[in-house]
Amino acid sequence: MSFLQVDNLVTRYGAITALQGVSLRVEEGEIVTLIGANGAGKTTLLRTLSGILRPATGAITFRGENITPWQTDRIVRAGIVQSPEGRLVFRGMSVRENLQLGAYTRRDRDEIAKDMGHVFELFPRLKERLNQSAGTLSGGEQQMLAIGRALMSRPKLLMLDEPSLGLAPLLVREIFRIVEEINREGVTVLLVEQNARQALAIAHRGYVLQTGQVVMEDTAAALAQNEVVRKAYLGG
């Protein structure tokens, strides 16, 4: 049994079936990337895995447990957290408060303080802006805060929804470097991206999602070489 196993997941918004039977797996320690065009269902998949959306059918198994019916707080406690699409930081709150909210499901004060220290090691810029309200951060800093906030729950599986969205190439590289670093420290990563080139460069394996279905799965290296993928997602 895989670390995370998703079987035949179907999620609907009213009449729209956004996920039409998605199956995939993530092994412990991997970076797995999920690429796909706008509207493919990437965000819907992450929201379903987080328990924010309820699947119509299908099963999600995490470390041998069927977590499909679980509430989000229980899923976060079990070790799955996502940094949502569009850098949804709490704009009116300070950087510190954002990070504290990341640890919402935890009660171990001393350990939380330690983890906040670690987030500052990864993102020194956040430490300098500790008391600044998150809305005044630059786009890149907000993305760092969103990732740092997710890390505050001490996840085993970190899901990132388009962390490179709207960032300058230099920043994208920095963010991806940090994602690799987080992964080296033992956090498994499910990386949703439209920026397929860079995602495939750091991932071990990848899936291609198209209109709610997995149409391809392979090692990242193989996908990067694949003719169809190159045409559709790597710009030729």
Binding site: S50, T72, D73, V81, L88, F90, G92, M93
Partner: peptide, 23 residues
Amino acid sequence: SSHGRAVLAVREDEIAAEALGVP
């Protein structure tokens, strides 16, 4: 209180709050 922070998080961004496990 820490609950107050969670309540404000609901106002600021419901999806983000939900994603962090805030009920």
